[in-house]
Amino acid sequence: MTSSTLRLNFPMWQGGANPVYHFGSELLSWLAPATNGPSETVDVAFNHTDESANSVADENGIKGRAQILKQIDHCRTLIDKHQPDSLVVLGGDCLVDLAPFAYLSERYGDKLGVLWVDAHPDIMTSAQFNHSHATVLAALMGVGDSDLTGFVKAPIAASKVMYAGVNNESEYEANFLIEHAMQVCRPDEIRDGSSAAKIGQWIKDQGIEVLAIHLDLDVLDASKFGPLLFNRPDVAADAFEGIAQGQLTIEEVLQVIQQATAHTKTVGMGIAEHLPWDALRLRNMMRALPLLGD
């Protein structure tokens, strides 16, 4: 039976090689408004008693390859069980959107556009980086490791993708965007409002009728929003030097999403990369308290 909207709780953390993504996904699922439709949770290997035991090894260029593939396969099984018209995905690292967006591409074909709200373009391959959360959009385009692209039966054309918030790309990333003629709304364009016309023209030119939105929370300015990788409390101040960081506010993110959804029907919404450091520290403190932690 076809369901209107399937909600997927997907606490994958191996794609970013950081077990805190698992807790971040669980907290997102708790924070999210209640759903009237079906909800499923993807099986994700995790040691709940000792997060330090959750390390993952490099397997031929991808950390935790076997675990990741098993999780993506289970995610697709859950989607096929419901065959929904639309999907909400609460992650987890960015790789959680691979199977859901691949499914939407199969279902809607050329009518589908993808709004990728992120500080990073996520178009690396295992040749550049062994954290597969940075490869998800390339895989959706049919580029990269065959174990990942194998889940994508209908690759998404570069012209059907609009980035929002990407900045300070690496040389490899910048060249990829140029070679594939990919469109980007930069943070300044979102702030000054010129993104509205750019997004509207993209939707018109590409004949986009339905939209899948990927929201990586690291598109947000880390000085204005706390639960992000760049606010990790146990690393040196310069630990993330040279890595692009988000420059948007929550209001600006909502603005650019509203600019896109004003012209289309939304059929996919994925939220990823939630790292609630303070909530984690409080949880760990409570585990050590008398009576609570016994």
Rank of each mutant, 00 (worst) to 15 (best):
S3H: 04
S4M: 06
R7N: 00
L8R: 06
F10E: 08
A17E: 06
A17D: 10
G24L: 09
S25T: 00
L27S: 03
S39V: 02
T41G: 02
V42K: 03
D43P: 00
F46M: 11
T49N: 03
D50E: 13
S52A: 15
A53E: 09
N54S: 00
V56H: 08
K63L: 09
A66I: 10
K70I: 04
I72H: 01
C75M: 12
C75V: 09
T77L: 15
T77K: 14
L78Y: 11
D80C: 10
L87I: 06
L87P: 00
L90M: 05
D93M: 07
V114I: 11
V117G: 13
D118N: 07
D118L: 03
I123F: 05
H131K: 13
V136S: 05
L137S: 11
A139D: 15
A139P: 14
L140R: 00
G142H: 10
F151H: 05
K153P: 00
A157L: 11
K160I: 09
Y163G: 06
V166I: 15
S170C: 07
S170H: 10
Y172I: 00
A174I: 07
N175F: 13
N175P: 06
H180Q: 13
M182V: 03
M182A: 05
Q183H: 15
P187M: 08
D188Y: 11
D188W: 13
E189W: 10
I190T: 00
I199H: 05
Q201K: 04
Q201Y: 04
Q201R: 08
Q201L: 08
Q206F: 03
D218A: 06
L220E: 09
D221G: 07
L228A: 01
A236E: 14
E241F: 07
G242T: 08
A244M: 05
Q247V: 00
L254E: 15
V256I: 14
T266A: 08
P276R: 01
W277V: 01
A279M: 13
N284C: 00
R287I: 04
G293H: 08
